[in-house]
Design a protein around this nucleic acid. Structure first.
Length: 795
RNA sequence: GCCGGGGUGGCGGAAUUGGCAGACGCGGCGGCCUUAGAAGCCGUUAUGGGCAACCAUGUGGAGGUUCAAGUCCUCUCCCCGGCACCA
């Protein structure tokens, strides 16, 4: 008997697959299936065993779908812009392009030994000018539609990276990349109007086959709330405070107003505020704090009263004081609130601290202890007394001439970075024409070669120092002008890459319309949960924009989303060089084989759940494959069938098919093991049955599958075979274990046919010695009979 | 604090959605084979009691619904992920 030599077998088949080009995507009319991995950032560290988990799953799924007659698009590429490559370049004085292509080569090698069915003809790389030409093109379309604008608002500034960071790039109060505490600094930025799409992104979530948790966090992230905008006159001054509130029903209980420290009105009221110095000091103090610090101070509210300023409550014309306090945020709502201490906990705490009146206007709570935020009937509200508070929201808003509006937590997306290694923003600044789009025929605006990648530290990109690149002519008037030196964030390239796979080499369009119509949308998208609210929101936003301008024909990019649970190191920590706990897939493949690694990673536990790596457990997967290997030597050469195996075989076809479809790979493998164990016990294995077994195993362990296929004298490649079908009539067991309970406790289990009737079951039960002793001398009170399962005798 | 997902043997995890709890695998124990080991094979492995057949207990905890609860309901404790003064 030949030994199972994974090294030989895996090399052999990988070469055959490549030579025959069987994974090349076909242009056919058959139904399509687009299976996509979140493409990796090719870091210098290479892959650890956790990385391929998702890729193994998509590979299994693709192979399964292909064998079920689908035309498959299963591509891979590289998200290669970003800070690590740039930092590496700064340190080692090597152009990022060089290290990136080296890393890609390494990643590709590591992936290739795992036997994936990627169509490498469609490989893309976000840093390839032919690719980012279209990233820039999309930006230009947004610019033309007024969705990209410049803004000088203060942004998060990392003094170490010397770059601006979006809120999303922060980790607590620190820079996500380098752990330095960030500051605030006003910088000119490009911003994308993602807020314009907030409502649509929220609505269309309902149609997606995504995990509920992701949909929920996107809803939170978008943070839609309906409320009212109401004006408060300032006494004696011709100015108004516009507040946003979701509780217009409590307007009669508003006993003061609060402005955010960033609120513009403060400066406008400078001359009227008697304690301006104090107010200004407070503003400065708040500026020092990051938003994170500010929002962390849950206990103690701070603020300063604006002396000499009074607002007028439009409901009851009461004169109320105005404060500046940092618990009100400048960028949310109108940056100003009406405070109702009786019915908002934050206002309640503030009012207690500053000794402000607390007036109950909704009945139902005990406002001496805490704010009552529930629903109820209005009191102390003039003509609205007795009204239901939900009704009162609209009624009171109208009464004071306010308007019903909608606000979002979602903020516009700061889209520029003061960095070298990113897509240049295709804009030219002209002193006469302002910001002018680079003509589309001049795209891509390529990154120039530079001497130093160091950030300038002034907030400008290293590109600013390259005079012959920066200096150009205005595309509009031809006058001397300067190029935009900001680059795009890493998210940019990943916002639309899935479209490029559909038509990766097209120089005339982002994607051909026919091809887009055929392949879109992505049927299954697999990746880590950490991208729930960033990548997935940005990509949806871009996609909807592309839909609006007619580039794509579907509203949503990703129909179904599957999470991959991370694999941690054996010690439970993240696998990282830093902890020295990294397991390299190359080593595992060398010792056990790619097929073993694939089977093991899918068998470890539920696919979307995190697990710790266990090198000692991997032996189980290897033993399983060895067992299958040995089984092949007891296969009958003629077509004799082993009848006693049929029920289990067909049950296995059913279970494995269903489990792959639902990404329950662990139970699919377990079922294959059960079948293999049974086959081992049998006298012999029929050739057809073993053939079926190979087919079922092949998505998980494609190399050994092809080898066994060949050993059985079967022709062709397993990938090109048809997926087996099950026969429902065969699945039905001839005999089942029928449970007999007395008073709900199992007293006997008998083998019988599944169609046994209640009367027959009762007779059998009464015959059983084990049951007899529990029911004799007691009257039977009740019988519960569940067909094909159990009988429960109550005595 | 809010939202989402969890808590089952020594370990990873199963459980046809209310019907034999612990499938499958790892590890352990005993045995076969071997000069010996490795590999492999066979048996065993939730806990307590018993020589045994068997009996009792058992899915984080406390109640409840039901003939029947890991699964449904109420309360509660713990773990993981996300969001967080959002007016």
């Amino acid at each position: 008997m030949r030994q199972y030599d994974h090294k030989k077998i895996e090399k052999k088949w990988q070469k055959i697959w490549e030579d025959k080009g069987i994974y090349k995507t076909q242009e056919t009319d058959s139904p399509k299936c687009y299976v996509l991995d979140m493409f990796p950032y090719p870091s210098g560290e290479g892959l650890h065993v956790g990385h391929p988990k998702g890729y193994i799953a998509t590979d299994i799924y693709s192979r399964f779908k292909k064998m079920n007659g689908y035309n498959i698009l299963h591509p891979m590429g590289w998200d290669a812009f970003g800070l690590p490559a740039e930092n590496f370049a700064i340190k080692n004085k090597i152009h990022p392009e060089v290290s990136v292509s080296k890393n890609i080569k390494r990643f590709k090698e590591q992936l290739s030994i795992l036997g994936f069915s990627y169509d490498w003809n469609r490989e893309i790389n976000t840093t390839d000018p032919k690719y980012y030409k279209w990233t820039q093109w999309i930006f230009l379309q947004m610019f033309k539609k007024g969705l990209a604008y410049q803004s000088y608002e203060p942004i998060n500034w990392c003094p170490n990276c010397k770059t601006g960071l979006a809120n999303e790039d922060l980790d607590g109060a620190k820079c996500e990349r380098c752990d330095t505490v960030v500051e605030k600094k006003p910088l000119r930025q490009w911003v994308l109007k993602i807020t314009e799409y907030a409502d649509r992104m929220l609505e269309d979530l309902d149609e997606l086959n995504w995990p509920e948790s992701i949909k929920e966090s996107q809803r939170n992230w978008i943070g839609r709330s309906e409320g009212s905008e109401i004006d408060f006159e300032i006494e004696g001054i011709d100015k108004k405070i516009k507040v946003f509130t979701t509780r217009a029903d409590t307007l009669f209980g508003a006993t003061y107003c609060v402005l955010a420290p960033e609120h513009k009105l403060l400066d406008e009221l400078k001359d009227n505020i008697k304690n301006w110095e104090e107010v200004e000091g407070y503003k400065k103090e708040v500026e020092q704090k990051t938003e994170i610090e500010r929002t962390k101070e849950e206990r103690e509210k701070t603020g300063v009263k604006l002396e000499g300023i009074f607002a007028v409550n439009p409901a009851n014309k009461e004169k109320i004081p105005v404060f500046v306090a940092d618990y009100v945020l400048g960028h949310y709502g109108t940056g100003a609130v009406m405070a109702v201490p009786a019915h908002d906990q934050r206002d309640f705490e503030f009012a207690k601290k500053f000794g402000l009146p607390i007036i109950e206007v909704i009945k139902g709570g005990d406002i001496s202890k805490e704010a009552f935020v529930g629903d109820g009937i209005l009191v102390n509200s003039g003509e609205f007394n007795g009204m239901d508070n939900k009704k009162a929201k609209k009624a009171i808003t109208e009464y004071v001439g306010g308007k019903i509006t909608v606000k979002y937590k979602l903020q516009d997306w700061v889209f520029s970075r003061q960095r070298y290694w990113g897509e240049p923003i295709p804009i030219v600044h002209c002193s006469d024409c302002g910001a002018v789009a680079v003509p589309e025929e001049d795209l891509p605006v390529e990154l120039p070669k530079v001497q130093s990648y160091e950030p300038t530290g002034t907030g400008e990109s290293p590109l600013a120092g390259i005079k012959d690149w920066v200096n150009t002519k205005c595309p509009k008037c031809g006058k001397d002008a300067k190029r935009e030196t900001n680059t795009m964030p890493q998210w940019a390239g990943s916002c639309w890459y899935y479209l490029r796979y559909e038509d990766p080499k097209n120089d005339n369009a982002l994607v051909d319309k026919q091809k887009e119509k055929y392949w879109s949308p992505v049927d299954v998208y697999v990746g880590g949960a950490e991208h729930a609210t960033r990548h997935l929101i940005y990509a949806r936003f871009w996609h909807k924009f592309l839909y609006d301008i007619g580039v794509v024909s579907y509203k949503e990019p990703f129909l179904r989303l599957q999470h991959v649970g991370l694999i941690n190191a054996e010690d439970g920590r993240k696998m990282s060089k830093r902890w020295g706990n990294v397991i390299n897939p190359d080593d595992i493949v060398k010792t056990y084989g790619a097929d073993t690694l694939r089977v093991y990673e899918m068998f470890m536990g539920p696919f979307d759940q995190g697990v710790s790596w266990s090198t000692k457990s991997i032996i189980g997967a290897r033993r399983f494959l060895e067992k299958v290997w040995k089984l092949s030597f007891k296969v009958k050469k003629d077509n004799k069938k082993n009848e006693s195996l049929q029920a289990l075989l067909h049950k296995t076809i059913k279970k494995v098919s269903e489990d792959i479809e639902s990404f329950d790979f662990n139970t699919a493998i377990s079922q294959l093991m059960i079948l293999a164990n049974q086959m081992e016990k049998e006298e012999f294995v029929g050739k057809d049955d073993f053939k079926t077994f190979i087919l079922l195993l092949s998505p998980f362990a494609p190399h050994i599958a092809d080898e066994l296929w060949e050993m059985q004298g079967l022709s062709g490649l397993v990938y090109e075979q048809k997926w087996p079908e099950y026969d429902q009539s065969l699945i039905k067991e001839q005999s089942i274990n029928f449970v007999i309970q007395v008073n709900g406790k199992v007293r006997d289990v008998i083998k019988t046919n599944p169609d046994i009737s209640e009367r027959e079951a009762l007779e059998l039960a009464q015959k059983s010695e084990k049951v007899k002793k529990w029911i004799e001398k007691k009257g039977i009170k009740k019988i519960i009979f569940v067909k094909g399962r159990l009988i429960n005798i109550i005595v």
